[in-house]
């Protein structure tokens, strides 16, 4: 390379201006050709790995689809959904399948199997991808561990979003049924708490940001908790004061009330009887 530079420099000294321009064009062209060659070499070494990855994913996805269809048919024949709903009965709301799904359990099982196979395919593909590289290549050393981190972060985000939505709805419904005026704020607060926590976990998993993420997460989390505490505290001020007043007005004061048996402490009877 040094020899080449010396040669070019020597030629420049002895050539007229037009010759120098011609030499510069040649030099640029040479540099471009070289870089193109390097990129093509990288791509050629990259493509078999990518192809292996795609083949593995498609193959396992196909196998997963076949297994899922077969399992679905078997479960439908065995009346799996009906048996499960009969078995769950009134405990159905607490069932495993109640978490997020709006699908029958048989479809959930078949889909879970499909995605399991696809994930196995992704894992096999990544392994094949790594194996297709030569050991002196710098790309897999950087890419492969990071790819697994990316997949992990995506899974964390997915689970976090589901949990955030579930908890937000639970809080919203419970708060509305408790007739809390700030139900929406409470629900949004819980949702963003979980989302912020999830985002921080995902970024931490990706090893992005380092201490900044932890610091930002702490500030955001603390801020949301403080906001919620203020909202609940201010909103429930009357409720709490009424509750304390009721406790103080009972004969014997709060300490005596606390010592009473639950059977003695009769709550005021509602005039409406729902049951």
């Amino acid at each position: 390379m040094t020899l080449l530079l010396q040669l070019v420099y020597g030629l420049r000294q002895g050539l007229p201006e037009s010759g120098k321009e011609w030499m510069m064009g040649q030099q640029i062209e040479f540099a471009l050709r070289q870089s193109m060659h390097r990129v093509l070499v990288v791509l050629v070494s990259f493509l078999p790995g990518l192809l292996a990855f795609l083949v593995a994913v498609i193959l396992f996805a196909l196998v997963g689809a076949i297994i899922a269809i077969a399992i679905r048919r078997i479960l439908t024949t065995a009346r799996f959904d009906e048996r499960l709903s009969r078995g769950a009965g009134s405990s159905a709301p607490a069932s495993l399948f109640e978490w997020t799904s709006n699908q029958p359990p048989s479809r959930l099982v078949s889909r879970a199997l499909f995605w399991l196979c696809t994930l196995v395919g992704v894992a096999v593909g990544i392994s094949a991808f790594g194996a297709s590289y030569s050991s002196d290549s710098q790309v897999p050393i950087f890419l492969l561990p990071y790819l697994t981190h990316v997949i992990g972060a995506v899974l964390i985000l997915f689970a976090g979003t589901l949990i955030a939505r579930f908890l937000a709805r639970s809080v919203l419904i419970s708060a509305v049924n408790a007739q809390l005026q700030y139900a929406r704020i409470l629900s949004l607060g819980v949702k963003w708490l979980v989302l912020v926590l999830t985002a921080a976990m995902a970024l931490d998993h990706l090893q992005v940001g380092g201490a900044i993420v932890s610091l930002a997460f702490g500030i955001l989390f603390g801020g949301i908790v403080l906001t919620l505490a203020l909202a609940v505290g201010l909103g429930s001020r009357d409720l709490v004061s009424r509750s304390i007043e009721r406790t103080m007005e009972r004969p014997g004061g709060p300490s005596e009330v606390a010592n009473q048996r639950p059977a003695d402490a009769q709550p005021p009877r509602s005039r409406l009887r729902h049951f």
């Binding site: 709301p93 069932s95 399948f97 978490w99 709006n102 709805r169 639970s170 419904i173």
Partner: peptide
């Protein structure tokens, strides 16, 4: 139809 979580 399990349009949403049954508890909800």
């Amino acid at each position: 139809l399990r349009s949403l979580n049954r508890g909800h």
